[in-house]
Design a binder for these strands. Structure first.
Lengths: 210, 210, 210, 210
DNA sequence: AATGAATGAGAATTCATTCAT
DNA sequence: TATGAATGAATTCTCATTCAT
């Protein structure tokens, strides 16, 4: 009947995949289930995607595209890394609340079950941010906005570590439980405090005149 | 053959489990495989552990016990949080290199596949460190060693986030690949730099007279 | 191969199940074995039947349906219970020889291993005959064809007991052996005698003018 | 410790076996479970009984012994088959209520799962009663107490059929449910009616002067 | 002699993938 | 082209039986 999968249907299929992968993990998610959720037949799934692995990759890439888009829309003054950090954190907090399954799937791909994708995906996903953050903080050091004894690469790395954990804290059940042990509420209820304290945590490494 | 299990063999079984769970994840690890790796029959596994879930929990708890032991051996001056941080990081770096599968399994339990354990395990595992770090930094603020505008709970939380990522960076393949994007080497080769830069990253939040 | 299941194949699967359940009993029959016998894959079994229990129930119900059909085809004069008994016995003797596995499975469901089904199946299977026979003999008593001091319910019950044992005697190995102890031949070889003597056994309770 | 299984312990073990076999059936009963119930080790079970089959046989034989003892204690006037039938029924009703697991196990051995024992056990168990009843009714016919057109062998067979069903009706869950469909109560509550109606059912085949 | 831990074959069930319709 | 039924390898878990202690 369906002459060709419309653009929109394709989106739906990938979203169905992202949700399932995020909820159950790669291994525990069944292709039949995804097909049912997307209201298509498994046959179609296998027509468009060679196998489950490729479909997973397609889901990851779609999700990554959306994240990149969100991040690329952040406007900021070139020479103010703290301002950039603030907008980045805000954007991520918003993204987490709008697309929790994306983040959950993102987390899944760091797991053992997805180990075979690490070499490709780490490069593909983290490459962008690694370069972006490294550049931001290298420039900041040049501009004497970062303390001079700081290694901008490792600084960027720790910074990104904090952002990753931030996202998992919003979206993954284990990390949500863990957050409650520290702050006795859900991350959503502590949006502002999290952002502000995280900025303070970073600020002291910067040498901004305020 | 029918060889009685020694205390040591029992340890080996748990280690075999930890390795497999770390390498493949909970769902992808088969009890038969674990049994084969430990050179016992599946029957034994099911004699000692009601089912796979309980065996997994036993592995997690054994691993947690060893980590707790390592952490409890850290000596430090009560009023010097930076010194404590340094020893903590060193200890973790060592632990990561000695027991990478433990950390890998620790990471696995944050994944969707282990989601049913989140409520129990987050409390059990993170509870200890959450209290410990919160206490350390609350005290530090009382002693005016932490900047007064810092929330010690969230500070402890971010601190722990950095330590978790540190461990995953040493042990999990995705994170190892990711680290290379920032620093173009393996974490082991950058032990000292990682520790020092991480300390610098923290230091500015402290108000230590040096 | 991937051959679509025909209506007829579906029948065959149930027949395979009935045979296996009759030969080995519920617990001792494996789904793989049934699948092999029906020349299909286990997967199909589980596509059509949620689990082994449901498949067993489906087999029982198919079998019951056929028995009911055979019984409903018995024609008889309303006011002649002995004639009805005769035709009933004949029908059962024929049914036993045509579908011995059905009777064997019927016997299996009275066993401990099928105990969890007793409440459902006793009602479902015995309900029909219980009502039918009770009605027949109540009416017979009203018509003064049954001795007036007879309880028609218990009479129906004993009557059905004899018919159950008749069936088991034809189909179940233990009961076949047992029959030989009494009559030194197989039930098939004694068809006529069995029927006639059973009718005589009953007849004296009736008050028919011959 | 235990130098030798005492007579009493042996009884206990067999009773444990009878209970378990009666409750779960041959295949579903585990040797470990029986050992636990009898508070001995599996090792002992296998010391005394070569394997599960032999242990089952031992249980059956013990049970049979007790039944035979009960039946042999029935006193009756040589030439009164109806009186004998009455005492026999009473004895069985009592036996059923005192030893339901024995009867359940007896039923189990007629099932498919125990099919390999049919040739031995049918002879062993039914042989006694087959001869006894055949003799009783042959004699009755000679004495003109049984209608002359009756085949005493088949009469004995039907008679025994009714007694078997009587026992199952008291002890096996499926048959208990079935009885309720006819008489809307438990067999125990209908002891007297069952016995009387069964005797009436038989009586008309006899030619007793009352 | 008694114990009960260890063995391992076998059963139910799932799901990625194929291919007849 | 789209469908979804069919396949069957792989997984969890059980239990009769053995044999080291």
């Amino acid at each position: 009947m369906l002459k060709r999968l419309t653009e929109q249907k394709l989106e739906e299929i990938l979203e169905a995949g992202i949700s399932e992968f995020g909820e159950r993990g790669l291994e525990q998610t069944s292709m039949n289930r995804i097909a049912a959720r997307a209201e298509i037949s498994v046959g179609v799934l296998y027509k468009y995607y060679e196998n489950k692995d490729f479909f997973f990759l397609a889901c990851v890439r779609k999700s990554l595209g959306e994240l990149e888009k969100a991040l690329s829309e952040i406007e900021h003054e070139e020479d103010n890394p703290l301002q950039y950090a603030e907008r980045l954190i805000s954007t991520l907090q918003k993204h987490c609340q709008e697309h929790p399954s994306h983040i959950r799937m993102y987390h899944e791909l760091t797991c053992a079950g997805s180990g075979r994708f690490s070499p490709i995906l780490a490069q593909e996903i983290e490459g962008m941010t690694a370069h972006l953050y490294s550049a931001v903080f290298e420039k900041a050091r040049c501009n004497e906005m970062l303390r001079p004894d700081t290694d901008p690469q490792l600084f960027a790395f720790f910074f990104d570590n904090l952002l990753m954990m931030l996202q998992f804290t919003y979206c993954c059940s284990y990390y949500r439980e863990r957050f409650r042990l520290y702050y006795n509420t859900t991350p959503e209820n502590a949006d502002v405090q999290i952002r502000n304290e995280l900025l303070k945590f970073l600020k002291h490494s910067f040498t901004l005149k305020e």
